[in-house]
Nucleic acid binder design. Sequence first.
DNA 1: GGCTGGCCCTGTACGC
DNA 2: TGCGTACAGGGCCAGC
Length: 274
Amino acid sequence: MRPVPELPEVETIRAQLDPRLAGRSITDAGAHPSAKFSPAVEAVGCEIAAVGRRGKYLILALDDGSEAGCELVVHLGMTGRLSISPDADRDHPHLRAWWRLDGDEVLTLHDVRRFGRVHVVDAGRYEAIATLDRLGPEPFSDQFTGDGLWRALSASRRRVKTQLLSQRPVAGVGNIYADEALWLAQINPAVRQVSKPRAGRLADAIRTALASGLRHGGTTLRDYATLDGSSGRNQHHLRCYGRSGEPCERCGAELRRRTIDARGTTWCPVCQRR
DNA sequence: GGCTGGCCCTGTACGC
DNA sequence: TGCGTACAGGGCCAGC
């Protein structure tokens, strides 16, 4: 099991970063030569106005002197980890990017498997980041409704779990919370069509699963840690993800595991019957 | 334009 | 103990 930072984990990190970064200037930066990380240096000379989030993307609003401003966009991928420290160990094998801040601290991005990404774009211009450009509504916003989710899911014949992971019907749901939400809504992850009432249930379930993650500071199974290096606690509250072989706590049947869209998927064969 | 499958990438688990 | 192999998975991209 190797969980990735999903919305609750990214939001937990965002809330910790914002008070420590807002108002500070980036005086220097460096990055791994990969094109995934090298844009990090484009933020030098900017002042960080605020740390925001869209889906799983951290968005640092930057004041670069222009009217519109720009943004430093960071996706943590599967193993990305941000931290603030007095200095960066530039020889660390997993250091992918660093930004020196006024006040003599360094924001670092470590990412063992290099699935993370860094971009610097004009504010709100995400054409170069396809997934962010076409990101669905935030799950806790008024724009995310059961009807809207039903319309989004009905627009495609792909499996419901595949669609959730695409980030188009709703932003920020990854493998853990997709399994949790589908279990809560009693929807089989492999179905290709969902009725309007069931889509309503799924929308509620997505909010419930994500809210549990937020309440417990995110899910830590191996790689994820918050800004200060501490672990989340939501792994103790998962009811489906990663529990294959264990009894379903709703009906007692043995939870099963299969691969959907190349992602490990756990579901209950009885109460999530197709 | 939508969908599928391959790829990136490296630590860990497991079998021999 | 050491080696080789399979596996994990978010997002991008080529090909259909």
